[in-house]
Design a protein around this nucleic acid. Sequence first.
DNA 1: TTTTTATTTTACAATTTTGTTAAACAAAAA
DNA 2: TTTTTGTTTAACAAAATTGTAAAATAAAAA
Lengths: 197, 197
Amino acid sequence: MPLKNTGTESLIKETAKRLFFAEGKLHATTQEIADAAGVNRTSLHYYFRSRDLLLEAVFKEAMQGLSLRLAECMEAEKPFKEKIENLIEVFLKDMIAFPYQETFLVTEINTLGKELMGNIQSGPIQTFLKDVRTEMDKGTLEEMDPIHFLMNLFSLLSYPLIMAPLYRQLFQISVEDFAILINQRKEMILTMLFKKN
Amino acid sequence: MPLKNTGTESLIKETAKRLFFAEGKLHATTQEIADAAGVNRTSLHYYFRSRDLLLEAVFKEAMQGLSLRLAECMEAEKPFKEKIENLIEVFLKDMIAFPYQETFLVTEINTLGKELMGNIQSGPIQTFLKDVRTEMDKGTLEEMDPIHFLMNLFSLLSYPLIMAPLYRQLFQISVEDFAILINQRKEMILTMLFKKN
DNA sequence: TTTTTATTTTACAATTTTGTTAAACAAAAA
DNA sequence: TTTTTGTTTAACAAAATTGTAAAATAAAAA
């Protein structure tokens, strides 16, 4: 079964991801995607049959990637604090490259429905939540529902990057100065999350 | 000049806001908006001329509202900590009602361009940033760029509500349990932001 | 080489979405 | 009452977007 595999299929998918996740063009048309990929729009139908199926493929891959990244960070064989440090680095890097990935996921869930996401491994997260609880018992973390701890972590990580265009206006700062601020956030988040003493 | 003022114009605008901001239907069509409002689609053109102009109206009003809410919270005649408490209450309430408002604003900025938002009063924010700096000098707040403090505040406030559909899956919790968690966040955010001693 | 097969493109069709024109309607003014 | 004016609707037109069929192309297989 000889596939020529010109790479067009993944080119289209990656281009769609770039438009959706990196550039925030959440309602990009098939034409816009094809143009950005430098291919004929019909190729998009050849490989994905319809726009909806392309979106579904993009959605599922993103979901799977997120799930995998989470699991890898959470199951790493490291002391708790190092795990968190690594997690911050990994997700900060991802958010800088693809700030609108999560936004895409949520809005697609809202429109296409939640059936799409069966791919989530909730196991690693549940065990990690227990690790968080253990740390709280040890006294290294403030007492709270472990879910709050994780939500706080991802809030502090993601939100500023998602809302960058808005906050640059509100705070009247340049793209460069904003980038500097973002680079300071890893350390800052760590001091926010862990107890001082 | 007697206007009959049947309220249709604002009905359309409020319905659009509901779809965009509350239900997260970020690509609602004019037909969907008209149907949701229970009016003929042509009325939408009668009052707003085009879809883009309706979006522009919605965008500008939301931006103005946000700016106003911010200014009112920040300029209030209260001790700093009470200001923050009030701000959390105000914005948490708003985020519960309209979780996708900020998402809408950012994605529209990305597509329609940044020309739209001239309406922002940056003055109140700038003076408030100085207040934050003063509090840090007093020692009630952790030392950091005041912009970080504000970004942290809004991150912790907004992000969990924006990403609720995603996080409910990741954490495997029901809508009800999630709502309970959200209700705990005001107190939790306060203890995260202010120094313990 | 010819044949086969996967891929790409062209041309066209169908559907969806938006926008316009003119008529119908309803309430206040004359 | 009739007239006027603002509002709503119906019917139609235009544009944008998606989808399909078949032809052209190019690379591997025979």
